[in-house]
């Protein structure tokens, strides 16, 4: 997921760079007939616009249905309270089994924090904000066993980077 996001972005940016490169390389010699250039330009622009709109509709439909933040349909997930405070996490439980639907009920006692679960490969699995006065439910079903970590992803003061907790995920018996 993470790397494909990077690759798609680089591809898009590379395309834009190529178009700019093409135009800069073809900036001369001067063609006095700007009317003619503009006419062809408007034609390309129209299709560029239609293409972007069409891509937008497709991507939006594909990525928004079903709504990505919907609570999981699991019957009765195991609920684990997670409370952030400057500068530590308090998890009601630190051990989970693979395949077990878990709902982290995340809040904060003081300022905004970010509750982000990092996998054993050090990549983010999922996240939500930890807000004073609110509970955000984050549904996760761990697929692989290993040591997961919770890092804080909302800047919360001088020890923000050191606000780490661990979750041990074990194979289901």
């Amino acid at each position: 997921m993470h790397i494909s996001i990077l690759l798609v972005s680089l591809l898009g940016m590379g395309f834009i760079a190529a178009v700019f490169g093409f135009v800069v390389l073809n900036s001369g010699p001067r063609d006095e007939d700007f009317g003619g250039i503009a006419k062809r330009g408007y034609f390309i622009r129209l299709w560029w616009f239609i293409g972007l709109c069409a891509a937008g509709v497709l991507v939006s439909v594909w990525s928004l249905i079903p709504f990505p933040l919907q609570a999981s349909s699991a019957e009765s997930p195991r609920i684990i309270q997670a409370v952030g405070r400057q500068w530590s996490w308090e998890l009601a439980s630190n051990s989970v089994e693979t395949g077990e639907p878990v709902r982290f009920r995340v809040t904060s006692q003081d300022v905004n924090h970010g509750f982000a679960i990092y996998g054993p490969d050090d990549k983010i699995v999922a996240q939500t904000q930890a807000m004073p006065g609110y509970f955000n439910d984050l549904d996760v079903t761990f697929e692989h066993a290993g040591k997961y970590r919770v890092l804080c992803l909302e800047y919360c003061g001088v020890a923000h980077h050191a606000m780490v907790a661990e979750i041990a995920v074990t194979e289901k018996h």
Binding site: I16, V23, N26, G28, R30, D31
Partner: peptide, 15 residues
């Protein structure tokens, strides 16, 4: 569509 493309159209074969 407007600003970047418009700028490029201005530059293309402008000398």
């Amino acid at each position: 569509v407007m600003t970047a493309f418009g700028g490029l159209m201005l530059v293309y074969r402008s000398g």
